[in-house]
Design a protein around this nucleic acid. Structure first.
Lengths: 214, 214
DNA sequence: AACGGCCCCTGACAAATGTCACGGTCCGAA
DNA sequence: TTCGGACCGTGACATTTGTCAGGGGCCGTT
């Protein structure tokens, strides 16, 4: 709305969301080196994304997945709903197959893992801003291979709660279920993940990004 | 050797080590904004730190703890041994109490977690270069509270191997021990960590930084 | 209305896990 | 040298965990 400024020099407005202040600031420094990019907002929590975006009206939002308050996937969905004109580029530490799928389903335009060369980030931002999709091809292949989560809602919930490492009784108490039910869900999850253990099942599910907060 | 340049404008030479290329590059951009700092080397693996340092002769090395090849603590020790004049500032994601202790014991001059404000990083580098120590006070307190690891070498090894989530038989095979011995070590570790589980024990030990590679 | 899927529960069983008591070796400190 | 501690092992035991076969309730689809 406040557009059409001086004419040719109209930078892409960016919002950064990452819970680690140091990398957030560093990314800001990196992107600010580019003439056509301008960081207009920085936040450290997922639930601060939408409010900050309303204030600063960014063109592209770079969101981390692991964040307190609201994870990056949920933040993506919320941001898309609140400001449809703002595109989302998810930037994350882990190239979990499920993360990519969920991010795209939530309306992200791009997905970049943090071990891609720094040079490519600015280009990814420009591509996303231009309406293109940016996805790591290797990761895309893995995503297709991994498929959607075979776990049912309850199984996912039980497995997620089991991450802390409590006994069956603990889980049953926390979820208000009977111990037998918890064991059944765990058993099903173990079977579906191909694991031989509760611990192994958690590891597999986590690596595939099947344990993201619902 | 090629020292004593133009006189007053003699920037502090930096080496960056972080396995995530994006944050490595971003940190380089951030630090390069400072007139008195100059990034002379970047590596993505722990075992590349010493070779790169030999080539570039940095004044200060910023090392991540989580790295392939060699973790940041071991890299610190190796670097201190190879180039005693180069000071080390450990920059890490996790403020595990044990990490700080181990880093200092290995000869680091500073320890910074990645959620400190970006502004403070350059100052931390300057302080370290000046011969001062830089430590997050909160973390220092936690470190004193947590104390050294109560785990014996073997217990640590067993617990570390158990992270993957295998059965007792798996562990026994991997470590060339009898199943009974493995169970004994696990039991001892569970007792010492105050956990009620193998999984809980692993979690506790990991949070305290007691499982670092020996 | 019948079916299938998910959910919750029960009860029983085998297997894995955690605990305990014990004996032995090795090594460094008292 | 004797002692204590870490280390490896055995065997026995109680508990927990994982599996299986049921039972019933609640949808949504056919």
């Amino acid at each position: 709305m406040s557009a059409s400024g001086a004419g040719p020099s109209n930078p892409i407005r960016l919002l950064l969301a990452d819970d680690q202040a140091l990398v957030r600031g560093a990314l800001a420094a990196l992107l600010s080196l580019e003439d056509d990019l301008s960081v207009v907002a920085e936040v450290g929590r997922g639930d601060e994304v939408v409010p900050a975006a309303r204030d600063s009206d960014p063109d592209v939002a770079l969101l981390d997945v692991e964040m307190p308050g609201l994870d990056g996937i949920a933040a993506t969905a919320a941001l898309r709903a609140a400001l449809p004109s703002c595109r989302v580029l998810v930037v994350t530490t882990f190239g979990r197959p499920g993360y990519l799928r969920r991010a795209m389903e939530a309306g992200a335009s791009g997905f970049v893992v943090k071990d891609t060369p720094a040079r490519q980030l600015a280009d990814a931002v420009r591509r996303v801003h231009a309406g293109l999709r940016v996805v790591d091809p290797t990761l895309a292949a893995e995503t297709l291979a991994a498929g959607v989560s075979p776990l049912t809602d309850r199984e996912t919930e039980v497995l997620r709660t089991a991450r802390g490492g409590g006994t069956v009784a603990d889980l049953a108490g926390a979820l208000h279920l009977s111990e037998g039910t918890v064991r059944n869900h765990l058993s099903a999850a173990i079977g579906k993940t191909g694991a031989r253990n509760r611990a192994e099942a958690i590891r597999v599910a986590e690596q595939n990004g099947w344990l993201l907060g619902e």
